[in-house]
Nucleic acid binder design. Structure first.
Lengths: 376, 376
DNA sequence: TTGAAAGCGCTAACAT
DNA sequence: ATGTTAGCGCTTTCAA
C-alpha cells in the first residue's frame, strides 16, 4: 500500500553555494572545493549583497525596499547582485528592527467545513493588494486549542487578528483585548465583541427562516442539526432565533434530531429517515447546514415524497454545491465572502493607527427559496 | 443590506501598561500617572517581567521556555508575574537570536477545492505535537503568484516548506533549492523533485483506472474534466496515463469534454448531457474529479440510464461526500491525508539536520469500485 | 545620494 | 541556580 523510495540525491546547484564558493556538483565528477555535506547552510545577508555590489548595507537595504533616493546606477548594480546571489531578505530581522510585521492572523475552527475556506478566500483576496499576508490557525472547535493558537499568533506580533466567533475563553479575550492591534471577530454579531465584529446575526437568520416557513403554510416543523453541546454557537443561536419566532406564531419545533461526525450528506439521509419514521406528520425539515439538507432532500425525493407540496426543506449557508442537485434546496446565504472582505478591510485600513476602535458590520442574510419551500 | 455600527471604544486597561506605568514628567521630574487614552500601546518585554518578578531577564527567559535548571520558587514567581502582566513573548526577537523558527510553510493552489484543505489537515495533525506550526500560502494556480508566495515564506526562514506539485517556475525551483531547509513537493511524484516528494503517481492512477474499466468490458470510453491548458498538471498526467493504458488495449478515448469555473456538480450534469447527446454510444464516462462525476451520476440516474449496466462512471479523489449519493460513484483515492502526514513527518524529522537529502514517498492510489462500474 | 552608529527583544555561551 | 555579555540581520536616525 505504501512504497517508499529513497532517492538520496543531493540538492546541489552551483548557484546554491553562493558566489564566494566556487565548486562543482559532485554528480559531474569535477573537483569540488567543499564537501557539500559538511557545509552548514548559511543564509545570505545584506552584507553579502553589499560586498558583491560594492555599496553599503544601508544602500542595499534601501534599494531592496524601494525606500529613499538611490541613483539608478547603484540601484541596478544592487538588484543585479541580489538576483545573482539569490538573496532573500530576512523578514525576522527586518520586523524586529522596524517593529512592523505584514502578517494578519486568521483563526478558524476547521478547514473541513467549506464555510471557513470561503471566508478565507474573501480575506486573502482583499489583503492581496495591501502587502499584508494572512496566516491561518485552526482551533478544531476547542477553546483551549484556540487559546494556544491566539498566543502563538500574537507572539509573532501580527498587524491584526481575525477570529471566528464571539465566544472565547476568558484568557483568550484578555489576550485579544491587550493585543494592541485590531481584532475582528467574524461570522456572528450576536454578542459583545472584543474590538470589531463582522458577520450576520444568526438569531435573526433563524427568525427569518421561521417566518418564511410559517408564511408558506407549514406547521409541523422539525429541526435537524449538529450535536452542539458547547461548540457550535452559531447553530445554537440560529435555533434559538428560529424557536423564538415560531413561538411568536404559537408554534414550536415538533421534533429534533442531532448528529456528529461522518459524511454530512449520508448523515442527512439517515437523520431524515429516522425523524420521519418517528414523527410521520412532520411537514417541514429545517436543517442546520446545507450538506445534511441535501442528503435529506435526496432521501425525500427517492421516497417519492411530494416536495415542497407535502413536505418542505431548508438548509443554511448557501453553498454553491446545491446548484447541481435535482432540486434547489431552500437556504439562507451567510455572506461569507463579504464577511471575509470586510474583516480584511478593517485590518488593512487600521494599520498604524494607535487607537483601537470597535466597529460592527452586520450583513443581512438573504433567503434563497429554491424549490423546496411552497410559494406563499 | 449592510449596516455599520461605530462603537468606538478604547481597548485599554491599567494592567496592559505593565507595572511601570508610573513615570516622571520629563520637564518637572514630578511623578505623574499618564492618562490611559494617550498611552500608545507598548508591548511588554522580558524586562517588564524581570522587573516585576525580581529576577534577571535571562532567568525569566529560561522559565518561559522550560530551559535549564530553575528553582521551583523562582519559576513560580516568574510565571505568576508573566501571567499577571499578560506577557506574550516576542517570537520575532526569539527567532532572530536563536536562528530557529517553528514555522513550516505550506503552499497550495487553492482553498476552494476540498482536496487541499484535506492535505492540510494531515499536515497540521502531524505537526501538532512537534511544536511546529503550519503557515498556509495560496497560489491561485498561478506560477508568478507561487513565486511570490515562496519568496515571502522563505523570508520568514521557516523550518521547512511543503508545496503542492512538481511544476514550478525556474526562479521558484532555484529558491526552493537554495532554501537550506527541507522542501517537500506533494500530491504528485511524476517528475523530478527539488528535494523530497510525497504523493501518488497520477499517470499510474490513470492507467489503473483504464485497466479496471476495460476489464469490466467497457469499450466506448469518454473523458470529462477541467480545462487544463497549463495549470492542472495532475489531471493532465492522469489523462496521459489513462490514454496510454487504453492504447495498450488498442483503444482510445472516443470523446472528451472540458469545463472551467462554476459549480462542479452542475457542470458535471451539463457536460454529461452535452457529451451523451453528441456521442450517444458512449458506454463509460471517466471524470477528472468526483464532484463533476457526482453531477454526471445524478444526470444519468434521472435520465433512467442503466448504471452500471449500459453505462459506467468513475471519478477521482475519493471524497467523503460521495457517501450520501443515491449510488456510490467509482473513484480512486488520492491518499490526501496520508500525503499530508508523510510530508509533515519528513519536515519534522529533518529538523536541525544540515544535510539536504531527498526522499520520495509514493502512495498507491486505491480503486474504490462503488456501484457505477460493472463487476468484471 | 550615501554611510555610520545604535538598537529592536531575545537567546547562546560563558561566567559565577 | 542565576547572571552577564555579545550578538542575531535588519532598519531608524542622524551625519556627511
Amino acid at each position: 500500500m505504501l512504497a517508499i523510495t529513497q532517492a538520496g540525491h543531493l540538492a546541489c546547484s552551483s548557484e546554491a553555494l553562493g558566489a564566494n564558493n566556487r565548486e562543482s556538483c559532485p554528480a559531474t565528477g569535477i573537483p569540488v572545493t567543499r564537501p557539500p555535506s559538511t557545509e552548514p547552510h548559511r543564509a545570505l545577508t545584506l552584507r553579502d549583497v553589499s560586498e558583491v555590489s560594492g555599496v553599503s548595507e544601508m544602500t542595499v537595504s534601501r534599494v531592496l525596499r524601494n525606500r529613499g533616493d538611490v541613483s539608478e546606477a547603484t540601484r541596478t548594480r544592487v538588484l543585479e547582485a541580489a538576483r545573482r546571489l539569490g538573496y532573500v531578505p530576512n523578514k525576522i530581522a527586518g520586523a524586529l528592527a522596524s517593529q512592523r510585521v505584514n502578517l494578519v492572523g486568521v483563526i478558524i475552527p476547521s478547514l473541513s467545513n467549506m464555510v471557513f475556506p470561503e471566508v478565507l478566500s474573501g480575506i486573502s483576496e482583499t489583503l492581496e493588494d495591501t502587502g499584508l499576508q494572512p496566516v491561518v490557525g485552526v482551533s478544531n472547535y476547542q477553546g483551549d486549542r484556540e487559546e494556544q493558537v491566539i498566543y502563538e499568533m500574537l507572539s509573532w506580533r501580527p498587524s491584526g487578528l481575525i477570529i471566528a466567533g464571539l465566544e472565547h475563553s476568558e484568557a483568550s479575550r484578555a489576550m485579544l483585548a491587550q493585543a494592541g492591534v485590531p481584532v475582528v471577530e467574524i461570522m456572528d454579531i450576536d454578542g459583545e465583541p472584543v474590538d470589531s465584529a463582522v458577520g450576520i446575526s444568526h438569531r435573526r437568520a433563524g427568525r427569518k427562516m421561521a417566518e418564511a416557513i410559517v408564511a408558506a403554510g407549514y406547521r409541523r416543523i422539525a429541526f435537524l442539526g449538529t450535536h452542539m453541546p458547547t461548540n457550535d454557537h452559531r447553530a445554537r443561536k440560529r435555533l434559538e432565533g428560529f424557536e423564538e419566532a415560531l413561538a411568536g406564531f404559537g408554534l414550536s419545533v415538533v421534533d429534533r434530531e442531532f448528529y456528529s461526525g461522518g459524511s454530512a450528506l449520508a448523515k442527512g439521509r439517515e437523520m431524515t429517515e429516522t425523524i420521519l419514521k418517528r414523527t410521520p406528520d412532520i411537514d417541514f425539515l429545517y436543517y442546520s447546514n446545507d450538506m445534511i439538507g441535501a442528503g435529506g432532500l435526496l432521501y425525500c425525493l427517492e421516497q417519492g415524497l411530494d416536495v415542497p407540496g407535502k413536505i418542505g426543506l431548508a438548509g443554511f449557508n448557501g453553498v454553491e454545491l446545491l446548484d447541481g442537485l435535482p432540486r434547489r434546496l431552500a437556504t439562507m446565504d451567510a455572506c461569507r465572502l463579504e464577511t471575509g472582505r470586510a474583516a480584511a478591510e478593517i485590518i488593512a485600513g487600521k494599520r498604524a493607527t494607535g487607537v483601537v476602535g470597535g466597529e460592527v458590520v452586520e450583513f443581512e442574510p438573504k433567503l434563497q427559496p429554491g424549490d423546496t419551500i411552497r410559494k406563499a
